[in-house]
Amino acid sequence: MLRIEGLRVAVEGKRILDGVDLEIAAGETHAVMGPNGSGKSTLAHVLAGREGYEVEDGRITFMGEDLLAMEPEERAAAGLFLAMQYPVEIPGVSNMYFLRQAINAVRKARGEPEIAAGAFMKMLREKAKLVGVPEELLRRDLNTDFSGGEKKRNEILQLAMLEPRLAILDETDSGLDIDALKAVAGAVNGLRTPERAFLVITHYQRLLEYIVPDRVHVMVRGRIRRSGGRELALELEQRGYEQFAAEAA
């Protein structure tokens, strides 16, 4: 589904990603771990098509298409979703309205009809309950004055509503209390299907107890230094990233 080959990315002349290779197949869940500043969010942003990143080398194919040639909205329509580390506030635009317009934008790009008001509301109620987003939050302005945890839950609600092929979760667990963590993990697990893939960026192996990954990758200084199974996360928790720092130097 997703193939990244030799990806080199710079920001303002500074090399941040230094040769990333990663392949994710449909139905798989991959975790990326790594120290602060190692380039995890940069990778997520480049995948979603954010401006300001200079791709110096490498290739990304998504569902057989050249991802780097697509606009962010085209990537969304193709089924890519990024739950952001820092969701953005949009004052004056209600959460619910935004969601409906987003669904319709994506549907339109795919040549599908708009979602009917009734069907939308029904789906929204179900999913909101699943993720633990209260009705009141649906009517408020998008992310505006939401608590950190509320913002994260809301990202997962968007994920559940937009039903992407590949969902990237950038530190969705950071700042969540234990109940929220379980709710979010439960929602994500409910969305795992043979057609859908996940890329979960996290600092904590605890999340991976709930969302059990097929593969774990360790990113240090802009490169994936080691990949392994679920047990790699446990090892990291015990030994830290120091071992990789030497490798990277």
Binding site: A48, P72, E73, Q101, A102, L162
Partner: peptide, 9 residues
């Protein structure tokens, strides 16, 4: 970027 990543032009 946030809006575009959700599908808006």
């Amino acid at each position: 970027f946030y809006c575009r990543s959700r599908g808006f032009s």
